[in-house]
Design a protein around this nucleic acid. Structure first.
Lengths: 202, 202
DNA sequence: ACTTGCACATACCAATTAGTATGTTCATCT
DNA sequence: AGATGAACATACTAATTGGTATGTGCAAGT
């Protein structure tokens, strides 16, 4: 093993993705990795701190990294958002669809149960939300978006619809349902773009 | 206690709502109820079967009951869908917002872990989906909806957006965010209704 | 050469978990 | 009156869980 700590993090991330944090059994993950408790508790003081590390070092960066790119996107901001959504979709296959969105899973499991998780997950959502909101605001400032769309509120809607696509795909265990919902979301975004152009006489 | 079985069901439903199914500790719920293991295992053979019963007898009927009313709704089918969404929203307060949607929670926790849960949750989602899809199809048949909207796919989107509102509200622990996303969803539905009317020259 | 400390391994443990096995009470039926 | 069965209560248990306490090998610094 080149980097034991990283291996522990990644295996536990996979276990959390499949079984939820409460369902993770450190003993099992340890034996799968072929290491012992000594190694595990050398790097992490407890299961809870390991969970935090998974969020901080794996889940968080993955999401914030993607949406941060919105700020540097050239062209119509709505197309930037669509580009991010397509990026997420392209990372999905049938198996990923069954397991759902790691962030969405963890929010629904842990947000009401543990303050440490909640703050971390909220920070990730807030980063995504503000990135989307800024993109919408840029569009509005350029006159590319209908004035009666509130960027902040509409960003929550986009975020909600996106996370919901995962829930639908997971419940139906059908990537077709995930894609259908995602397509409709993207179509809706392009519709408000078109309508705004018409309204502004462009 | 008038109906011990029902009390067991409801207390466990509350525990599942807060902590997830894996987080439920029958012992704890039992002692909260002031009963003993004898009573619990008299009515339910196992924790898993109790979980199934909670879905079958509490969660399922609550959701299918609401959306079934769409079939009897008079007026524009899109307004029927909005009516259902408003019904869901009216049942939410700050606490409910923190705990999220019981169905969404359970899907994200249990769908990949247990076939019995998965089938039951899928059936509930399918019932909601088909109710929404039928409403959209009725609208289309009456010429009230744009022809290029696929009822089946768009119904998945509505379902996704709705469930996503709960995830957003839960992660932000803010009913304001839930409401913002919900408002944008409703506005979007009314927008496609208006656009269809224009497109059809009404 | 000797100490120091990181990176693990081994062995043990208390509490919890999801049960089971076996009573007991009481209403109802015959 | 006696039998029967539903509706619980009590006591016990094997396995699991999330650790802790302690030991060891080995590389680096002095």
């Amino acid at each position: 093993m080149i980097d034991t700590r990283q291996n522990i993090l990644e295996k536990n991330y996979e276990a959390m993705h499949r079984q939820g944090f409460q369902g993770v059994r450190p003993d099992k993950v340890i034996s799968e990795l072929g290491i012992t408790k000594g190694a595990f508790y050398h790097y992490f003081p407890s299961k809870l701190e390991l969970g935090y590390a998974v969020v901080d070092e794996i889940i968080g960066p993955r999401y914030t990294g993607l949406w941060k790119q919105l700020d540097y996107h050239q062209g119509h901001p709505v197309e930037g958002i669509v580009w991010c959504l397509e990026g997420i979709r392209s990372g999905m296959n049938a198996t990923q669809c069954e397991l759902g969105c790691p962030l969405n899973n963890l929010i629904n499991e842990m947000a009401p149960l543990d303050e440490g998780f909640r703050k971390r997950l909220q920070a990730i959502m807030e980063a995504m939300h503000s990135a989307i909101s800024r993109a919408l605001q840029r569009a509005a400032d350029k006159g590319l978006l209908n004035k009666n769309i509130d960027a902040d509120n509409y960003a929550y809607f986009i975020l909600a619809a996106m996370e919901g696509c995962f829930s639908v795909g997971k419940s139906m265990q059908d990537k077709g349902a995930f894609d259908a919902a995602m397509d409709a979301l993207i179509a809706t975004l392009r519709e408000i773009k078109r309508e705004s152009q018409k309204a502004n006489g462009q």
